[in-house]
């Protein structure tokens, strides 16, 4: 995936069953963000793979004061890339119990 300067990682083991999963997001390269990044640290949150939309979560982060409005796209894309990867992995994982 394209390097957005924002890292999103799993914050728990993915058991492949839960629709809600814990993620952790932090800024690796503040230069990739348009606004002046507030150096808050890593943001841990829960993402629902079925019902949540990455761009909506990014907007909530902006409204919570973590990022500026101009960075909502890059944050949303970072979350979307990670979520796509999680879904892709799940599709490839065959349940041992069938």
């Amino acid at each position: 995936a394209e390097d957005t300067g924002v890292r999103v990682e799993l914050n728990e083991e993915d058991d492949g069953k839960k629709s809600s999963i814990a993620l952790k997001l932090w800024v690796e390269d503040a230069k990739k963000l348009k606004g002046k990044y507030k150096d808050t640290g890593a943001i841990e949150f829960t993402f629902d793979l079925v019902n949540d939309i990455p761009e909506v979560v990014a907007q909530e982060m902006v409204e919570s004061g973590f990022f500026l409005d101009s960075d909502v796209k890059v944050v949303g894309k970072s979350i979307r890339d990670r979520v796509s990867l999680i879904k892709w992995r799940r599709e490839r994982t065959v349940s041992p119990t069938g």
Partner: peptide, 27 residues
């Protein structure tokens, strides 16, 4: 620990924790 919690009006909870040093890009 240096964690803080922000709850958005939509109900989502954001927990702020220190970025793991080892996971930061080398400058």
């Amino acid at each position: 620990s240096a964690t803080a919690q922000v709850v958005h009006s939509a109900g989502r909870r954001f927990i702020v924790s220190p970025v793991p040093e080892a996971r930061l890009k080398e400058q």
